[in-house]
């Protein structure tokens, strides 16, 4: 019974993913929404570590680097995917997106090996002429593999 229900739910989910490809909306940038950044903090026995921006963009790119990125830009595309995951968490708290962000933070930061960490999402938007930052999500602590995860609160 459950397996049948699961497969129907899976088919509906698949259809929901497929239909926007067949009938795309093409509504690119109708408005500039609050923009999410990912910040990471390692958590240990000592004092709490400060939040750090995860992979901030470089200060400057040369024209040659920009052209090269037309052909090869895996890290930038992963950053765009992480921004999508952040938007999915903000929109509906999707657990898949949370796990994707954690997995990719761990893969990109060797110093995270064997250490617990958490991430938070900080949106930036404009109010009048002022830029306003707001923390909209803080993940549960992610224990390194082998340690028990933090119970959901």
């Amino acid at each position: 019974m459950n397996a049948g229900g699961g497969s129907i739910a899976g088919m509906i989910r698949m259809l929901a993913l497929f239909l926007p490809a067949l009938f795309p909306s093409w509504r690119f940038f109708p408005a500039v929404e609050p923009s999410p950044r990912i910040e990471v903090a390692h958590v240990g026995a000592g004092p709490a570590e400060a939040w750090r921006a995860f992979r901030p963009p470089p200060a400057r790119l040369t024209a040659a680097q920009m052209i090269a990125r037309l052909f090869w830009s895996p890290r930038r595309n992963e950053d765009l995917y992480l921004a999508s995951c952040a938007e999915r968490i903000i929109a509906d708290g999707r657990d898949h997106a949370r796990r994707e962000i954690l997995k990719r933070i761990r893969a990109a930061t060797p110093e995270a090996r064997g250490r617990a960490l958490r991430f938070r999402l900080v949106t930036v938007h404009r109010e009048g002429e002022r830029l306003v930052e707001r923390t909209v999500y803080v993940s549960p602590i992610d224990a390194p593999a082998g340690d028990p995860p933090e119970p959901a609160s």
């Binding site: 940038f29 408005a31 500039v32 923009s35 999410p36 950044r37 901030p56 963009p57 470089p58 200060a59 400057r60 790119l61 920009m66 990125r69 930038r76 950053d79 765009l80 921004a83 930036v124 938007h125 404009r126 830029l131």
Partner: peptide, 17 residues
């Protein structure tokens, strides 16, 4: 204003400058 905002605070610009 919208394009200014894209450059000002969105995640899209590839570098800080």
């Amino acid at each position: 204003r919208a394009l200014r905002d894209v450059f000002l605070f969105s995640t899209y610009p590839v570098s800080g400058n």
